[in-house]
Simulated scan of single mutants.
Amino acid sequence: MKIDLSGKSALVTASTGGIGFAIAQGLAASGARVILNGRSEDSLARASAKLLAAVPGVQLRGVAADLGSDAGVQHLLDALPEVDILVNNAGIFGPLDFFETDDATWEQYWQTNVMSGVRLSRALLPGMVSRRWGRVVFISSESARNIPADMVHYGVSKTAQLALSRGLAKRVAGSGVTVNAVLPGPTISDGFAEMMKDEVARTAKPLEALAREFVMTHRPSSVIQRAASVEEVANMVVYVCSTQASATSGAALRVDGGVVDDIV
Score class of each variant (00 low, 15 high):
Arg135Phe: 03
Arg212Leu: 05
Ile147Pro: 15
Ser121Pro: 10
Gly167Asn: 14
Val233Gln: 11
Thr112Cys: 00
Gly174Phe: 09
Lys197Tyr: 07
Ala181Asn: 07
Val152Pro: 06
Ala123Met: 08
Asp198Pro: 03
Tyr109Asp: 04
Gln161Pro: 01
Val215Gln: 07
Arg135Tyr: 01
Val233Gly: 13
Glu107Lys: 15
Gly127Trp: 12
Ala123Asp: 09
Ala149Lys: 13
Glu213Met: 04
Gly134Asp: 15
Arg212Pro: 11
Val137Met: 03
Glu199Tyr: 03
Met128Gln: 15
Leu124Asp: 13
Ala228Met: 07
Ile147Gln: 10
Arg131Gly: 06
Lys205Thr: 05
Ala234Trp: 08
Gly167Met: 09
Arg145Val: 05
Ser229Arg: 04
Leu125Val: 15
Gly155Asn: 10
Asp198Leu: 05
Ser140Tyr: 07
Ser157Phe: 04
Arg135Ala: 04
Pro186Glu: 03
Val179Met: 10
Ala204Trp: 03
Phe138Leu: 02
Phe192Val: 01
Phe214His: 06
Ala123Glu: 13
Ser165Met: 13
Val152Phe: 08
Pro184Lys: 03
Met115Val: 03
Thr105Leu: 15
Val136Glu: 01
Thr217Phe: 00
Val177Cys: 09
Ala181Gln: 07
Leu162Thr: 07
Val156Asp: 07
Gln111Ser: 10
Ala201Leu: 12
Gly155Ser: 09
Pro186Gly: 00
Thr105Phe: 10
Ala144Leu: 12
Ser143Asn: 15
Ala227Pro: 12
Pro206Asn: 14
Arg131His: 12
Lys170Asn: 14
Ala144Met: 11
Met196Gly: 09
Ser157Ile: 02
Ala227Leu: 10
Ser121Val: 10
Gly167Lys: 12
Ser116Arg: 00
Pro220Glu: 09
Arg226Ala: 11
Met216Cys: 07
Gln161Asp: 00
Val129Ala: 12
Met216His: 05
Val179Gly: 08
Ser143Asp: 14
Lys158Met: 12
Met115Phe: 08
Gln225Tyr: 06
Ser121Cys: 13
Val223Ile: 13
Val238Ser: 08
Ala204Lys: 15
Met195Arg: 01
Gly134Lys: 12
Ala209Lys: 14
Asn235Tyr: 04
Met195Val: 00
Ala181Phe: 09
Lys197Ser: 15
Val156His: 09
Ala123Trp: 02
Ile147Trp: 12
Val215His: 07
Ser141Asn: 12
Asn113Gln: 05
Asn113Trp: 01
Lys197Phe: 05
Tyr239Asp: 04
Thr178Gln: 11
Ala149Phe: 08
Val179Asp: 07
Val238Thr: 13
Asn235Phe: 02
Val230Met: 13
Gly176Ile: 04
Phe214Met: 08
Thr217Lys: 14
Pro220Gln: 09
Arg166Phe: 08
Ala181Pro: 06
His218Leu: 03
Lys197Met: 11
Lys205Asp: 12
Arg171Pro: 01
Arg132Phe: 01
Tyr154Leu: 00
Asp150Ile: 04
Arg145Glu: 13
Val237Asn: 10
Ser221Ile: 01
Leu162Gln: 08
Phe138His: 10
Val136Tyr: 02
Leu164Tyr: 06
Ser141Val: 09
Leu162Ala: 05
Phe192Thr: 03
Glu194Met: 04
Pro186Tyr: 02
